[in-house]
């Protein structure tokens, strides 16, 4: 690990100033420390925000206000989340291990880096790690990679389960800017697609800090999180679906679907939802939904299996929802 200066922030402003000066914040550290050990990330200054007073979950406009330092364990176990947003509890519990969930925070989970093995391997080229160096993943071994939202410069996958559930719930990220103002930003505006600048992953400006995630009023409906992975536990998603579905007599009244394991960011395609609304669930509709979702997919060699998994997961999710 490269040497670095460590400071503990006593207030947000200290952290923001350090960020503005090029520092890196650390909260749970479960991803950052790993990357620092491998020298994939080599921050000169690390600012510890883990003790900032951002760790409560409170009722907010009929929804929930989740402080950025709430741990994944505490969020998954929160009784309001378990009752009103079960898809979020399920997604959190489907991710990582008990030890990691105790350290990982809500804000840190959003900002975790891709697990693309080429990003981790400093002996290979990676535009995310070293801008302009090329992408060894394209033409390399592909499995935990994206098929939607990718570019010729990057096929990295956003690995979070939590963020997929947040996307389906229309959660917003609360950001405080250096001047002290706070605003809410939807996840699709928060995450940038790679394009020609895959090293820029979010729309955060220097000095911006995530203070919370805000969930809107619960909408009811049947919620589920389904995740396919290479082993039964403690593995990243090959494909996952977060769903909130209202159905009656086999017909979909309302539906929201977000996908993990396929997108450069937590993936949602409202065209698919619009197409299914008011329709009766049958094999034809499921096929059509999958085809529409994947109409822009780039199935590089080694990733073709994800198309099959998407169709199958859609099938089980929709079939169960109308039963």
């Amino acid at each position: 690990m490269k040497p670095f200066d460590y400071t503990r922030a006593d207030d947000l402003q200290t952290a923001q100033r350090a960020l503005h000066e090029g520092g890196t914040v650390i909260a749970g550290g479960t991803n950052l420390i790993d990357l620092m050990k491998l020298e994939v990330m080599t921050p000169g200054a690390v600012v510890d925000i883990s003790r900032l007073d951002l760790n409560d979950i409170r009722d907010h406009d009929g929804g929930l206000y989740i402080g950025a330092m709430v741990t994944n364990s505490d969020l998954a176990a929160d009784l309001r989340v378990r009752r009103d947003y079960p898809v979020l509890s399920r997604a959190l519990l489907a991710g990582a291990s008990g030890q990691l969930r105790n350290k990982a925070t809500t804000g840190g989970n959003l900002l975790q880096r891709t697990r693309c093995p080429y990003f981790y391997d400093r002996d290979t080229s990676c535009n995310k790690r070293t801008p302009g160096s090329g992408c060894a993943a394209i033409g390399g071994e592909l499995r935990n990679h994206a098929i939607l939202g990718t570019s010729d410069d990057c096929v990295a996958l956003h690995p979070s389960d939590m963020a997929v559930a947040l996307r389906v719930l229309d959660a917003q990220v609360e950001i405080e800017s250096l001047d002290g103002t706070r605003h809410l930003r939807p996840l699709d505006d928060f995450y940038r697609l790679p394009g020609t600048t895959p090293h820029i992953e979010t729309s955060l400006e220097p000095g911006d800090i995530i203070t919370a995630v805000v969930l809107p009023k619960p909408t009811g409906g049947q919620q589920s999180y389904r995740k396919i992975r290479d082993r039964a536990s403690y593995a990243f998603a090959l494909v996952s679906i977060a769903s909130v579905i209202n159905a009656r007599d086999g017909k979909i009244e309302n539906i929201a679907l977000a996908f993990g394991g396929i997108g450069a960011r937590p993936w949602r395609d409202t065209r698919v939802e619009d197409m299914m609304r008011g329709q009766t669930v049958d094999d034809q509709l499921i096929q059509k939904a999958g085809d529409l979702l994947l109409s822009d997919a780039r199935l590089l060699e080694g990733l073709e299996f994800k198309a099959d998994l998407v169709h199958r997961l859609l099938s089980s999710t929709l079939t169960e929802a109308v039963q």
């Binding site: 460590y6 650390i26 420390i33 790993d34 510890d48 030890q99 990691l100």
Partner: peptide
């Protein structure tokens, strides 16, 4: 927690 993924100074 995993003690290997945490800085002692924290």
């Amino acid at each position: 927690i995993n003690a290997c993924l945490s800085l002692a100074v924290m």
